[in-house]
Measured scan of single mutants.
Amino acid sequence: SKGEELFTGVVPILVELDGDVNGHKFSVSGEGEGDATYGKLTLKFICTTGKLPVPWPTLVTTLSYGVQCFSRYPDHMKQHDFFKSAMPEGYVQERTIFFKDDGNYKTRAEVKFEGDTLVNRIELKGIDFKEDGNILGHKLEYNYNSHNVYIMADKQKNGIKVNFKIRHNIEDGSVQLADHYQQNTPIGDGPVLLPDNHYLSTQSALSKDPNEKRDHMVLLEFVTAAGITHGMDELYK
């Protein structure tokens, strides 16, 4: 796709999030870079409003799984890469995230190029959380598991539907599940690639910047598309 050509090198990323969870309002600002050749993201996020009212790991899918245009699609799968094909005009990404036995996040993001920078601007609203639950009670460990993110075409809306389940580790050794339902639709009216069913395999590492006084998260992530085999004719070339 034409959009794919915008991702040949390292691309700067800007992320802006405004959130409200159970009436606790907050903002997060992030910057870093993405390299789609390797499916690599390096980002640093800062809570610009003081202390973040929710655990950082609960925002990873909104912040970095928010820029799935940096996923590495192998050559034989490039015609299934909706995310890059929607660029530079970008796409709207909407999600509902259900935390098992707790509340939910609803998010709406616009992901697009502004100049040479890929920008992810998000509004997040969280409701029905227990004040002493795993999320508002800050009981999650500061780490992140690997996940597969399942993608299918949504021809009606000229976009994709995505769903997956995140496993958050809790300090007591148990797990907090979070079910994600995602819809992506193009902002522009140019042609986009509608994929066959496949998935993104994601690995994320969270860390801290020892010199950063503000509440923050440093993230390194690798994302690769998989799940579609080479056609038989490919094998015999």
Rank of each mutant, 00 (worst) to 15 (best):
K2R: 13
K2T: 07
K2M: 11
K2E: 08
G3A: 15
G3D: 06
E4K: 13
E4G: 13
E5R: 15
E5V: 04
L6P: 07
F7V: 03
T8P: 09
T8A: 12
G9E: 08
V10G: 05
P12H: 02
I13L: 09
L14P: 00
L14R: 13
L14V: 14
E16A: 07
L17P: 00
D18A: 07
D18N: 14
D20N: 11
V21E: 00
V21G: 00
N22H: 04
H24Q: 15
K25E: 04
K25T: 06
S27R: 12
S27C: 12
V28A: 01
S29Y: 14
S29F: 10
S29A: 13
G30V: 00
E31A: 06
E31V: 13
E31K: 13
E31G: 08
G32S: 00
G32D: 00
E33V: 15
G34S: 01
G34C: 01
D35Y: 02
D35K: 03
A36D: 03
A36P: 10
A36S: 07
T37A: 11
Y38S: 15
Y38C: 14
Y38N: 15
Y38H: 14
K40T: 05
K40Q: 05
K40E: 04
L41Q: 01
L41R: 03
L41M: 15
L43P: 00
L43R: 00
K44M: 03
K44T: 13
K44E: 01
F45S: 02
I46N: 02
C47S: 06
T48S: 06
T48N: 06
T48A: 04
T49I: 02
G50D: 02
K51Q: 03
K51E: 11
K51M: 07
K51N: 09
L52Q: 00
P53L: 03
V54E: 01
V54M: 06
P57L: 02
T58P: 00
T58S: 08
T58I: 02
T58A: 05
L59P: 00
L59H: 00
V60M: 01
T61S: 15
T61I: 00
T62N: 01
T62I: 02
T62A: 06
L63V: 09
S64L: 01
S64T: 04
Y65C: 00
G66D: 00
V67A: 10
Q68L: 01
Q68P: 03
C69Y: 03
R72C: 14
R72S: 12
D75N: 09
D75G: 11
D75E: 11
D75V: 12
H76R: 09
H76P: 05
H76N: 12
M77L: 09
M77K: 03
M77R: 05
M77T: 05
Q79L: 13
F83C: 05
S85P: 04
S85F: 07
S85T: 05
A86P: 04
M87I: 05
M87V: 03
M87K: 00
M87A: 06
M87R: 01
E89D: 11
E89G: 11
G90S: 00
V92F: 15
V92I: 12
Q93P: 01
Q93R: 00
E94V: 05
E94D: 07
R95H: 00
T96N: 11
T96A: 09
F98L: 12
F98Y: 11
F98V: 11
D101E: 09
D101G: 09
D101H: 04
D102N: 02
G103S: 04
N104D: 04
Y105H: 01
Y105C: 02
K106E: 07
K106G: 04
T107A: 06
R108S: 04
A109D: 00
A109T: 01
E110K: 08
E110V: 14
V111L: 11
V111A: 04
K112G: 12
K112R: 11
F113C: 06
F113S: 01
F113I: 04
F113Y: 09
E114G: 01
G115A: 03
G115C: 06
D116E: 11
D116N: 14
T117A: 06
T117S: 07
N120H: 02
R121L: 05
R121H: 05
I122L: 05
I122A: 02
I122V: 10
I122F: 00
E123K: 13
E123G: 04
L124Q: 00
I127M: 14
I127T: 14
I127V: 12
D128V: 04
D128A: 08
D128E: 09
D128Y: 12
F129L: 07
F129Y: 03
F129I: 07
F129V: 04
K130Q: 11
K130M: 09
K130E: 06
E131V: 10
E131G: 05
D132N: 03
D132A: 04
G133D: 04
G133R: 04
G133S: 10
G133C: 14
I135F: 03
I135N: 03
L136M: 15
L136Q: 04
G137W: 05
H138R: 11
K139E: 07
E141V: 07
Y142N: 05
N143D: 11
N143Y: 09
Y144C: 14
N145Y: 10
N145S: 13
S146R: 12
H147R: 04
H147Q: 07
N148D: 13
N148H: 10
Y150S: 05
I151T: 02
I151F: 02
M152V: 14
M152T: 12
A153V: 04
A153T: 13
D154V: 04
K155Q: 09
K157G: 15
K157E: 14
K157Q: 07
N158S: 10
N158V: 03
G159V: 05
I160S: 02
I160L: 10
I160G: 01
I160V: 15
I160F: 02
K161R: 11
V162E: 15
V162A: 15
F164H: 03
F164L: 06
F164S: 03
F164I: 06
K165R: 12
K165M: 14
K165N: 12
I166N: 04
I166S: 12
I166F: 02
R167S: 05
R167H: 15
N169Y: 08
I170V: 10
I170L: 15
I170T: 14
D172G: 13
G173D: 10
S174N: 06
S174R: 13
V175L: 09
Q176L: 14
Q176R: 02
L177F: 10
L177H: 12
A178T: 07
A178V: 10
A178S: 06
D179A: 05
H180P: 01
H180N: 04
Y181F: 12
Q183L: 11
N184T: 07
N184S: 06
T185S: 11
P186S: 13
I187N: 11
I187F: 08
I187S: 06
I187T: 10
G188D: 09
G188A: 02
D189A: 06
D189V: 07
G190S: 08
P191S: 10
V192M: 13
L193Q: 11
L194R: 07
L194Q: 08
P195L: 04
D196G: 10
D196N: 12
N197K: 08
H198Y: 04
H198L: 02
Y199H: 07
Y199D: 02
Y199F: 13
Y199C: 12
Y199N: 05
S201N: 13
S201T: 10
S201G: 06
T202I: 15
T202A: 06
T202S: 03
Q203H: 15
S204C: 07
S204F: 01
A205G: 04
A205S: 07
L206Q: 02
K208T: 12
K208N: 06
K208S: 09
P210T: 11
E212D: 05
R214H: 06
D215E: 08
D215N: 03
H216P: 00
M217K: 01
M217T: 03
M217V: 03
L220R: 12
E221D: 03
F222S: 08
F222I: 06
F222L: 09
V223L: 15
T224S: 14
A225S: 05
A226V: 07
A226D: 10
G227E: 07
I228F: 07
I228M: 14
I228N: 08
H230R: 12
H230L: 09
G231R: 10
G231A: 15
M232L: 10
M232K: 11
E234K: 07
E234V: 12
L235V: 10
Y236N: 15
Y236H: 12
